[in-house]
Design a binder for these strands. Structure first.
Length: 416
RNA sequence: GCGGAAGUAGCUCAGUCGGUAGAGCAUCAGUUUGUGGAUCUGAACGUCGCGGGUUCAAGCCCCGUCUUUCGCCCCA
C-alpha cells in the first residue's frame, strides 16, 4: 500500500470541517483589521531563504527541501512565509505606495524534520505582516489581531510572552556581553549550548538543559543592554498592550531562532501541546528588507501553526458534539424518475440540502441511509403519492408523518 | 541527526509457556409487496506494518527496515 510520505497527512472528509472552521475565522478577523491576503508560490529561489533566515539556523542548514529543477535553478519549498512575503513585496513594489501594507496569508510550508506531535514535514501556517511602520503601534496592532483571533477560534488557555531583543546596536552589544559571560563559564555549559555559543549565542537563553538554566540565573539580561531607542519602543508596546486589555508576560529569556528579528519578539504558548508548546510567534524585522535587496522597510508580523491550533481545539473539546445534518432525504418508491428529478432540481434551487439513494436500496434501506446521514426530514415519493398528487414527509426526530400537496412543497421549511 | 515506546479487523484494543488469531464498537442480513434509531439472533471482515532469520512450528524469539509516538534538537 502506498502511504503519504513521512510527516505528511491527508485531511479526511471527517476532519476537513475543522480546517474550514479555522479558515473562516482567519478571514473574519483579518477583515476586521482590514488586512489583505497575499498568495505566493509554494517554491522560491533558494536564496530567498538562505539570505534571510540565517545560514547557521537548522532551517537553512538541514531542514529545507531544496532541489535543482531541469534547468539547474536551485529552488526550495518554502519553510516559512516572512522571507517569501518580503521578496514579493520588493518585487511588486508594494511598499512604494503611501501608508502601511497590511497582509495576511495561509498555506502549506515544508521542513525536513523528525515528525512529532504538532510537528510535520508539511505543515500549515496562518500569519500576518504589517509593513512600513516603525511605530510600536504596529507591533501592538499585530499582537491585537493575533490575540483576537486566538479568542475568536475558541482558545482560552494560553499565555502570551513578550520580550525585546532591541535594535541592531543593542543586540550586538548584548551578544558580546553574553558571549563573554558564557566563555567565562564554558565548562558549565551543556554540549548543545557550547555549539550555540559559536552559532547563535542568544539561543542559549531558552535552553532546556538544567546546566544552562542554572547558569542563566546570573547571566546578563538583555534589558540591561537596550539603548534608549530600543527601551522606548519596548515600553510603548507594553503600555499600549495594557491599554488594549491584552494580557502578556514578560520573558527576558525569549529569543527567536530566525536571524532577522529585532525589537519586539513574542510567542503564544499552550500547555496542551507537549514539547512543541508554542503555537504562534513573531516579532519585528526591520532589517529583513535590506537583507533581501530592498530599501529599508520596517515591519512586524507573526505566524501560527495551524495543526497546533487544531490540537489545542481538539484537546479542549471544541469539536465534541458536532452534529452534521442534511435537510432532506428523498425515499424513492417508484420507477417514475422524471417526477423525482424534477422535484430534486427545484428543491436544490431553493437551497434545500438533500440526498437520495444511489445504490438501489430497498425502502427500509433508504430509511436507514436517511438516518445515517442525519437527515432532518424524509420525503417519500411513491406511485401512491404521484397518483394522489401528494407527498409524504416525515420528521426524523419526532417520527411524525404527514401529507403535503405537490404544489406546496417548495414553501415547506426543511431547515427546522 | 540522537535516545525511549509502539504498530494485530474500518475504530479501540486482548492475545498466557512459540502450536496457523479474538472481544467491544462499527458494517451487513433477519418470517412476500411502503417506514429509520433500541433490543435480540446471525453473518461477513485479517498480507498480525514490511523484509529476512531461528524453529517441526513465529503475532510472540533475533536482525533489518518503514511509520507513529514521547523526549533531545529545532521551531509554528
Amino acid at each position: 500500500m502506498i502511504k503519504t510520505p513521512r510527516g505528511t497527512k491527508d485531511v479526511l472528509p471527517s476532519e476537513s470541517y475543522k480546517w474550514q472552521y479555522l479558515e473562516k475565522k482567519f478571514k473574519e478577523v483579518t477583515d476586521l483589521f482590514n488586512y489583505k491576503e497575499l498568495r505566493t508560490p509554494i517554491f522560491e529561489s533558494t536564496e530567498v531563504f538562505s539570505r534571510s533566515i540565517g545560514e547557521e539556523t537548522d532551517i537553512v542548514n538541514k531542514e529545507m527541501y531544496t532541489f535543482n529543477d531541469r534547468s539547474d535553478s536551485s529552488l526550495t519549498l518554502r519553510p516559512e512565509m516572512t522571507a517569501a512575503l518580503v521578496r514579493s513585496a520588493i518585487e511588486n513594489s508594494l511598499t512604494n505606495t503611501a501608508g502601511v501594507q497590511r497582509l495576511w496569508y495561509f498555506g502549506p510550508f515544508f521542513r525536513y524534520e523528525r515528525p512529532q506531535k504538532g510537528r510535520f514535514r508539511q505543515f500549515h501556517q496562518f500569519g500576518v505582516e504589517c509593513l512600513s511602520s516603525p511605530n510600536p503601534d504596529s507591533d501592538v496592532e499585530v499582537l491585537h489581531l493575533a490575540d483576537k483571533l486566538i479568542k475568536e477560534i475558541g482558545i482560552s488557555e494560553y499565555t502570551l510572552f513578550i520580550n525585546s531583543i532591541g535594535n541592531k546596536a543593542s543586540r550586538e552589544k548584548y551578544n558580546n556581553v553574553l558571549v563573554q559571560y558564557f566563555n567565562e563559564n564554558k565548562d558549565k555549559l551543556s554540549e548543545n549550548s557550547k555549539e550555540r555559543l559559536d552559532k547563535n549565542p542568544l539561543r542559549i537563553l531558552d535552553s532546556k538543559s538544567p546546566d544552562d538554566i542554572a547558569l542563566l540565573d546570573d547571566a546578563p539580561k538583555i534589558s540591561d543592554s537596550l539603548d534608549e531607542e530600543s527601551q522606548l519602543h519596548y515600553n510603548q508596546v507594553k503600555e499600549k498592550l495594557t491599554s488594549l486589555g491584552i494580557k502578556f508576560m514578560e520573558n527576558h529569556k525569549l529569543v527567536r531562532g530566525l536571524d532577522y528579528y529585532s525589537h519586539t519578539v513574542f510567542e503564544f504558548q499552550s500547555n496542551l501541546l507537549g514539547a512543541q508548546d508554542s503555537f504562534g510567534g513573531g516579532g519585528r524585522y526591520n532589517e529583513l528588507f535590506s537583507q533581501l535587496g530592498g530599501k529599508d522597510v520596517p515591519a512586524v508580523g507573526f505566524a501560527m501553526g495551524v495543526e497546533r491550533l487544531l490540537i489545542i481545539l481538539e484537546e479542549s473539546g471544541k469539536f465534541d458534539n458536532i452534529e452534521e445534518q442534511i435537510d432532506l432525504y428523498i425515499v424513492k418508491a417508484t420507477k417514475d424518475d422524471s417526477v423525482i428529478y424534477n422535484l430534486i432540481s427545484k428543491l436544490r434551487d431553493n437551497g434545500v440540502i438533500l440526498n437520495y439513494d444511489l445504490l438501489d436500496k430497498n425502502f427500509k434501506g433508504q430509511f436507514k441511509e436517511a438516518n445515517r446521514v442525519n437527515a432532518k426530514w424524509t420525503m417519500i415519493i411513491g406511485d401512491d403519492e404521484i397518483s394522489n398528487n401528494k407527498l409524504t414527509i416525515k420528521n426524523m426526530k419526532s417520527g411524525e408523518q404527514s401529507e403535503i400537496d405537490f404544489e406546496n412543497i417548495l414553501k415547506f421549511n426543511f431547515k427546522d
